[in-house]
């Protein structure tokens, strides 16, 4: 079942001769339980596709459907609600909120959605526990290692039954051991029914995905990279 669907999406920045076409007539869908890697050279439109899929940006043309509902027809508040309830993001540089502890960072999306603090905290603790960082729940972001930050970031992205997980170079700032651990967690989330989308340059990382979408100059040029290496067995 497609949780996120992009239909003939184009995105341009600027106007006239100086316009930059980041995406050109892209149609793609992301299903529940599957992890899709988006690959391509710099400037190919990978991150733009991710942000449009996550309702962070409006397409210039085309439409985006999340759970069958057209996002472009939604109000700003409705989009915010959609992001609170359905879409989680994991960024390369973690983007944890300063001033909030790990558990508070994870609980914040729930609290923003009106969940009472106690219940939000308890759900956040569950998420942290599942990711193996519950022992660091009271730490502030600057007291955590890179791997721990990214786990907290993933916990924040999946907490509260979110069904779409969008990740942008999730292991870019991590060493290989931590990177593999994080990929395992993302993969695990997808096995539980989450639709995962991962932007990456790394072919090795792409091998964790069920499908790979190749982008070049804003266009999808192939469903899978021709020379994709086999994914590690333990991760499957």
């Amino acid at each position: 079942m497609s949780l996120v669907e992009l239909r003939h999406v184009s995105k341009s920045y600027g106007e006239g001769a100086g316009a930059v076409h980041a995406l050109r007539d892209v149609s793609v869908s992301f299903d529940a339980g599957a992890l899709v890697a988006i690959m391509g050279p710099s400037g190919s439109g990978k991150s733009t596709l991710l942000t449009i899929a996550g309702s962070l940006e409006e397409p210039t043309s085309g439409e985006v459907l999340v759970d069958g509902v057209c996002v472009s027809e939604m109000s700003r508040d409705a989009k915010a609600r959609l992001r609170r309830r359905s879409i989680g993001y994991v960024f390369q540089d973690y983007n944890l909120l300063p001033g909030l502890t790990a558990v508070e960072n994870v609980a914040l999306p729930l609290e923003l959605d009106g969940v009472p603090r106690k219940r939000a905290r308890s759900a956040a603790m569950e998420a942290l526990e599942a990711l193996g960082v519950s022992g660091r729940a009271a730490c502030f972001p600057d007291e955590l290692s890179g791997g721990e930050r990214q786990r907290v970031s993933i916990a924040r992205a999946v907490v509260g039954d979110r069904r779409v997980l969008l990740t942008d170079e999730p292991t870019g700032a991590l060493d290989s051991a931590n990177g593999e651990a994080v990929m395992g967690l993302i993969r695990g989330a997808c096995r539980r029914g989450v639709a995962g989308v991962m932007v990456t340059h790394d072919r090795q990382l792409a091998s964790w995905a069920d499908d790979v979408v190749l982008l070049r100059d804003g266009r999808i040029v192939g469903p899978t990279p021709p020379d994709a290496p086999p994914a590690p067995e333990r991760a499957r």
């Binding site: 309830r85 609290e111 603090r117 039954d161």
Partner: peptide, 28 residues
């Protein structure tokens, strides 16, 4: 170690999150 997907606690308000959201924002 497995990926977490903690169940959404009930009672989330339909609009902007109400008092709970405001309290969280103000606290931050």
């Amino acid at each position: 170690m497995s990926a977490a997907q903690a169940r959404r606690p009930v009672a989330g308000e339909a609009g902007g999150g109400g008092m709970a959201a405001r309290r969280a924002i103000i606290g931050w």
